[in-house]
Design a protein around this nucleic acid. Sequence first.
DNA 1: TCTGGGGTCCTAGGACCC
DNA 2: TCTGGGGTCCTAGGACCC
Length: 420
Amino acid sequence: MATEANILHADLDAFYASVEQLLNPDLRGKPIAVGGGVVLAASYEAKAFGVKGGMAGRKARELCPHLIFVGGNFGEYQRLGDAAIAVLNDFTPLVERISIDEAFADVTGCTHLFGSPIDIATEIRRRVRDQLGLPISVGVARTKHLAKIASQVAKPDGLVAVDPSHELEFLHPLPVGMMWGVGPVTETKLHAQAILTIGDLAQAPGGSLERLLGPAAGEKLAALAWNRDKREIRTQHRARSAGAQSALGRKPATEAVYKPVLPHLADRVASRLRAKARAGRTITVRVRFADMRSITRSVTLDVPIATTTTLAEIAEELVRSALADHPCERVITLVAVSVSHLREQAAIQLDLPLGLGDEKNRPGTRQGIARFSADRAIDAVRARFGRDAVGYAIAQLDRARSVPDAFRELAEKDLGERDV
DNA sequence: TCTGGGGTCCTAGGACCC
DNA sequence: TCTGGGGTCCTAGGACCC
């Protein structure tokens, strides 16, 4: 076990909001929120009123009447997020990016070049501030979990290093809600057992956490509470699923509503899979109702697929069946499509699937070949002229209302390293 | 008449096989 | 014929993270 604190966790502060304040000086020092119906990010001035990411826009305005909503400069978020990560990469290749604005780095191998981990963290913060104009907080510790907690403690715009000989003194007084893996539901359950701090959790009798939270979660939290975090920095990730969803507002639960949306979602998912030479066997759809409850239906095929039309047809059948099971639900607010059980599939082998017992989709049939050719043609046109050059006519009608594609792309995780 | 969009992992029950 | 255990896969739902 390493005895040095060599793991850094760097996290840009209130990232989207900070970018907006950087781009527009009039917004500096003011409570702002990026988003509209939902707050995607809130400035620290807005957070002081209780505004948080993920909150409904209406509630945010109630909490903070002078809140300024700003539209998203999504391209700038991507550019500046990438630039901040590039600063970390100047020190070490062992960087694990968690999201657009957050990454771990293992500096074990580069201290002889750049000084102590604290020196490196200080320099990273200085460069991001000077070169990009953005505040970034950094935690330094011996493990990933502790480094992440340290960066949260450091916010806003700070640096916290946890001395390896005083880890539990740092960790145990903190509230359980700060632990990675404790969300609102788990926090409520723990509070009900008078477990308020991470120290309380560490002291919980053996087996009690497992009974309360299930075997996996109980064991994991107990390990983290004693700072037994074995996870290493992983520079490569392989996605296990790919999906797309669309919020609809409140719409009748009818085919006329969901049928036009599904080709659009299928197109987004399948084209991303094809671009990474991947395909998947399990197709899952989700339908959300007016009260935010949602149901899923899935099917696992014998053969992985990455074909837009076939995915859309299967998704439609699944949504139809899901709604048939809930005839009393008259309003839907969201549909989602995702593909999992992914596997490598070189483009030339992108076979057409069997659909749901559908003979005409078999590989080698005339329709199968036609679908394969249609996807290849669309992919080729987009490669040359951009994503908007060609699309599904019905799907494009839906664009006016939906979230910008630029935002969707921000949220996408890379499916893998390989390009076709 | 505004609660987004992209993911990961876990659990429980049932089917099926050995 | 009755009875049992273990493993794997699939489905549906849920919690959590950014």
